[in-house]
Design a protein around this nucleic acid. Structure first.
Lengths: 125, 125
DNA sequence: CAGGATCCCACCTGATACTG
DNA sequence: CAGTATCAGGTGGGATCCTG
């Protein structure tokens, strides 16, 4: 964890995996929801477009985070699931989730502070 | 940590903080190197431009992650440091760092695997 | 020293249409 | 079903020049 050695390429690498608007959401669903088909993910993430979903899934696949299984059958069927390696991201996703949750509260409290700063301070609700 | 509740806005919030090419690096330096002046950061991150450094610092400041202290003096002096709240990101940055480090090794090993896949498999080194 | 202002481009993102 | 192809828009990021 040295500060000066060629800056922290490690955190950048991690960001390289997580960067991309939909990747954390995809990982979240695959981690906690298990194997999913393409359209299942699409339903779970209604605001994503096919293009972007495909895009992000491909990148995660190339990075060995998720696995893509194609079934050679007439109604195409493709499944996505976490690789063992991808599962190592779970603690990170979990921390991100928890930090995000507390961050949301933090911001809400800041709002309140601004709202009540003119009211009586004795009211400690 | 439910899967279906309005998708995981929490992880997205966290990404909202960390997104930006230079933010993790900046946070890394401020977390482990302490208070830094503008040009100190610029020296520590040689490939960043003034514009982007300013940009990312401003965003982190607005998000209450870092604090910007301006000294009203003739040779301008501005210091940046983590807020108490920003410091709560430390475990996250640390996990990102560690995961990134192991990821780099993981990828190096994949390269090696591809290199030796034609050699004798009996060599279990 | 610590930026602000401008120009520029690549790529990220999205909507729509089409296909094996 | 699970994409691909194409077009269009917005934004992140970078280079350069200028300033209090």
């Amino acid at each position: 964890m040295s500060e000066n050695t060629e800056m922290c390429k490690e955190t950048e690498k991690t960001m390289g995996i997580l960067a991309g608007k939909w990747k954390p959401v995809i990982l979240f669903h695959l981690l906690y929801g298990g194997t999913k088909r393409f359209n299942e993910l699409k339903r779970l993430i209604p605001t994503v477009t096919q293009k972007m979903l495909t895009n992000q899934l491909r990148e995660l696949e190339q990075q060995d985070i998720i696995k893509r299984i194609v079934y050679a059958q007439v109604p195409p069927k493709v499944e996505y699931l976490m690789t063992d390696y991808g599962r190592s991201l779970q603690p990170l996703i979990e921390i991100m989730y928890e930090w995000g949750a507390s961050h949301i509260k933090h911001m809400e409290n800041k709002e309140k502070d601004l709202t009540v700063d003119e009211k009586s301070v004795t009211n400690s609700d």
